[in-house]
Simulated assay, not measured.
Amino acid sequence: MQLLCQEMQSQMKATPGCIQAVAKRIAKEVERICDKSSRIQTSGQIRSWQITLARHRLQKCLRYHQLGSKQGRVELHSSLGAIVYRHVTVAGSDLGFDARYNLIEDFLQAFYIEAIKAFRRENELPEDYTPRTQLQLAEYMAFTEQYAKRRINLPGGANQQLIVLRAQGFARRQPQETTVDIEMAVDSAKTEEAETYQRNLAVQQIRSQMIAKPTFDPSEESERDRVITELMKYLESQGQSDCMDYLSLKLQDLSAPEIDQILGLTSRQRDYLQQRFKYHVEKFAKQHQWQLVHQWLGAGLEHKLGLSSQQWEYFCNQLNEQQQQILELKIARQNDQAIAKAVQCTPKQLQKRWTQMLELAWEIRNGHTEAKIN
């Protein structure tokens, strides 16, 4: 807490009392995270993790403080909107950008109500607490960003960001369009206008929905989440715990300097880690779980591996007789053992040849052979 106070005092103008209160809340949150993390507890470096996480949260707070209340709101709104863009509508719905944008606005204004309640509850603040100074507002916006990105454990060992789960629940309910002003959500009813606003039936409905215990259907977990879960399992099976940490931080939209600071990496170590991470991701995508990844990308065999008709024709013409036979059997959903027997090769040789075919399709799909096609 003393370290946080010193760093805040050197980088912003605020009253000592306000700085101490914010520092105390950040320190308490960091201690809670470290106490609950089995990985941190068994690392033998609890103090180091506390300082690293505290500084990370402080930097988030300082960033919003530097942006100011108006631009800070814009940045937060834009960041959270990008995360939920794909999740605010039910699967298969064909909404244009404007319609989807309106749904995002409705959803996020309701989410801000949940976030301020969580902020008050977790920091043991009065029910009518509202951020008033620029530092307090920056603290609240930084908390809202972190709160939205919290990972929630689901049945079956999977997990998902809290805001995505909320957006999926919102999509299932599809409430009537209702706009809730973020400042009204944060502020307590101090004026007659605010009291009238908070008595509004729509606002009360949104609040009751946020208080209600959410229900999660594991069968509706998105393909992206399944890919991430399987990739995490694969990295763990390969003994790549540092790649798992790197992936977790990348999923939180952290910048390279932030990741370096949290993991304690030099630029050279980061480059090596990124190369190793890329190697394992490509191996995962083209060998270990190629079907899952291609399905997520909309590039399964039923979609011609994501190729256009012209690209697919070019792809097939590049295959030798054995590769064409492998492709036909794959399309017919034959298992690898049966395919290997049919083309007279070992399962390991089949896997290698299929990976080469996927790499060729990958190159064609990404335009690396565009000149040849044209």
Rank of each mutant, 00 (worst) to 15 (best):
L4Q: 04
L4T: 10
E7M: 09
M8F: 14
M8V: 13
Q11Y: 02
A21I: 02
E31A: 11
K36P: 00
K36N: 14
S38I: 09
R39S: 08
Q41T: 12
Q41C: 10
Q41H: 08
A54S: 12
H56N: 10
Q59N: 06
R63P: 04
Y64A: 13
L67W: 00
K70Q: 15
E75M: 09
L76M: 12
S79N: 14
S79E: 15
R86F: 06
R86H: 11
V88P: 04
A91F: 09
A91E: 15
D94T: 07
G96W: 04
A99T: 05
R100Q: 13
E105A: 04
A110H: 03
Y112D: 14
A118F: 01
R121H: 03
N123V: 00
L125F: 08
T130C: 09
L135I: 14
L135P: 08
Q136W: 07
Q136K: 08
Y140E: 11
F143N: 05
T144N: 10
E145R: 12
Q146A: 14
R150Q: 12
I152W: 08
G157E: 11
G157D: 05
L162M: 04
V164N: 05
F170G: 02
Q174Y: 14
Q176V: 05
V180S: 15
V180F: 13
D181M: 04
A189W: 03
A189E: 10
T191M: 04
E192P: 00
A194D: 06
A194T: 03
E195I: 09
Y197M: 07
R199C: 13
N200P: 01
Q205P: 01
S208T: 01
Q209K: 01
I211P: 00
I211T: 04
K213E: 03
K213M: 07
P214R: 02
T215V: 09
P218I: 10
E221I: 12
R224H: 08
V227A: 01
T229D: 13
T229H: 14
E230L: 02
L231I: 03
K233D: 06
E236G: 00
S241T: 08
D242H: 09
D242R: 11
S248D: 12
K250T: 09
L251E: 15
L254Y: 11
L254D: 13
S255A: 07
I259A: 05
Q261G: 03
I262Y: 11
G264H: 14
Q269F: 08
Q274A: 14
F277G: 11
V281K: 04
E282F: 06
K286L: 11
K286P: 02
Q289A: 15
L292R: 09
Q295G: 07
L301H: 09
K304R: 13
L305G: 02
L305Q: 10
S308G: 05
Q310I: 04
Q311I: 00
Q318K: 10
Q318S: 06
L319A: 13
Q323F: 07
Q324E: 12
Q324I: 01
Q325G: 12
Q325F: 00
E328P: 02
E328A: 15
K330E: 14
D336C: 06
I339W: 11
I339Y: 06
V343K: 09
Q344N: 11
L350M: 07
T355G: 01
L358K: 07
L358W: 09
L360E: 14
I364E: 15
N366V: 01
H368Y: 15
T369M: 13
T369G: 04
K372S: 08
K372M: 10
